[in-house]
Amino acid sequence: MKKFVLSMVTLATLAFADGNITYKIDGKDYEGYYVTASKNAPLVYMVHDWDGITDYEIKRASMLKDLGYSVFAVDLYGKGIRPTELADKKAMTKSLYDNREEMRKRLNAGFEEAKKLGLNTTNSLGMGYCFGGSSILEMARSGADLKAFVPFHGNLATPAGEDYKNTKGKIVVFHGS
């Protein structure tokens, strides 16, 4: 009995540990980041800007956790791929802008990873900064089942042949000029 209780405590601790998580998409490693406010805390599904997941996303995740949310920051580039040169950032984002199907696959795979972690994906919204904001709008157009999609300074252009008819949640755009 003592071993069982200890095992359950260990599992509970692991389920709500914060940090990096490696997961696979088509055999390639991706590294997301998550924080958990509480077992049933609403989830903020965050997409990084064109730098990949950096201290900026980690800081925002911590701030959201302090407000009572859990956060899963999805990795759209791959484990260890964090471009620093302008040309590399442009190349990484262009590769996904030019292949929306791949972008959606990576967005959905990250969301599935959040589910596996036990995060509250039934009460969730998606948000992203710049490239991440554009990606969140792509997720909205895909028909993802989130309550809201919140881009910050994302590209607002709708690609040819796409629309928002499958969008299930509300869209709240923050875009200064």
Rank of each mutant, 00 (worst) to 15 (best):
H153G: 11
G118D: 03
G118P: 02
L86W: 09
I21M: 09
D145W: 10
A91N: 14
L146K: 09
S62C: 07
I81K: 07
K168E: 11
D29P: 03
R82G: 01
M8S: 09
D51I: 05
P159G: 03
K170Q: 15
N20G: 09
C130H: 07
L6Y: 08
S95Q: 13
E112T: 13
E85H: 13
D18R: 11
K115G: 05
D98K: 15
R141W: 03
L76H: 02
R141L: 04
G68Y: 08
L107G: 00
K79P: 09
S124F: 05
K3T: 11
T10Y: 13
K59A: 15
G19E: 11
K28R: 14
A140K: 07
V35Y: 06
V9H: 04
P42L: 06
A12G: 13
D55S: 14
L146F: 15
I58D: 08
S38R: 12
P83I: 13
K116A: 01
V9N: 05
S177A: 12
T121V: 13
N99M: 14
E31G: 04
E57S: 07
K94C: 03
A73P: 05
A140L: 09
H153S: 13
D26E: 14
D18L: 11
R82F: 06
S135F: 01
S134M: 05
G132I: 01
F152D: 09
E31P: 07
S124Q: 08
K165Q: 11
V35H: 01
A157P: 02
M139Q: 05
P151T: 03
K24Q: 12
R100A: 10
L119V: 03
G52W: 05
L67E: 15
A12H: 06
A87D: 14
K28C: 00
A87C: 09
K116D: 04
I53T: 02
L86S: 13
S134V: 03
A157K: 11
G126D: 01
G176M: 09
A91Y: 11
D163V: 15
L64P: 04
I21S: 00
A144G: 01
T121C: 07
L107R: 06
V172K: 08
G154Y: 00
L64W: 07
H48I: 07
A17Q: 14
D163P: 13
A114Q: 08
D29C: 10
G80C: 08
T54N: 05
S38E: 15
P42E: 09
K165P: 05
G27A: 01
T122I: 02
I21Y: 04
L137D: 00
Y77H: 08
D88V: 04
K94D: 15
E112A: 12
L14S: 13
G154R: 00
D51Y: 04
Y129R: 05
K89C: 15
D98L: 10
L125H: 06
T121A: 10
Y56W: 15
K28P: 00
K105F: 01
K90D: 12
L137S: 02
D26Q: 15
G132N: 00
S62V: 12
F152M: 10
H175T: 08
T84W: 11
Y77K: 14
M63F: 09
K59H: 12
R106Y: 07
N120H: 10
D49M: 03
S124K: 09
R100G: 13
V74W: 02
K90M: 13
L43P: 00
